[in-house]
């Protein structure tokens, strides 16, 4: 079973990026690269080759869903799973993201002490289901 090591985190909010970085690196011992927009992510992803995308849903210009569609079109990125983070908390929207193939949806505000374990358990489930 592949181990989760590298995460590409995309969020337009600077402060949330600081919190998430600390939560994942200091608390969760993961390696994190961060982008402030979907466009940045499309440039960074091919070189960084993450194990998992952590995407904010509501971003200006290019939202999380569209970013993921484009990331999946990059050769070699087709099977990288995605976890979405959303502050919208609309039950229907969460369901739609799962339908799209997201392996989990984490609602904001998230608990930085729990974020890593949430991501790891979704990752493990995804690995097990093949």
């Amino acid at each position: 079973m592949a181990e989760l090591q590298k995460i590409l985190h995309v969020d337009d909010d600077d402060d949330i990026r600081i919190i998430a970085k600390m939560a994942l690196e200091v608390v969760g011992n993961l390696t994190v690269e961060q982008c402030s927009s979907g466009m940045d992510a499309l440039e960074v992803a091919p070189q960084y080759k993450p194990d998992l995308f952590l995407l904010d849903v509501m971003m200006p210009v290019m939202g999380g869903e569209e970013t993921w569609q484009k990331l999946r079109n990059i050769p070699g990125m087709e099977n990288v799973p995605a976890i979405f983070m959303t502050a919208k908390a609309q039950d229907a929207a969460t369901g739609a993201l799962i339908e799209l193939g997201a392996i989990a949806v984490i609602t904001k505000p998230f608990d930085p002490m729990e974020l890593c374990s949430q991501i790891r358990s979704a990752w493990d489930r995804h690995q097990n289901s093949g």
Binding site: D13, D15, I16, I19, A87, K108, P109, F110, D111
Partner: peptide, 10 residues
């Protein structure tokens, strides 16, 4: 919720 995420997270 977005600023609250940062506040609570911090």
């Amino acid at each position: 919720r977005t600023p609250l995420t940062s506040i609570k997270g911090a």
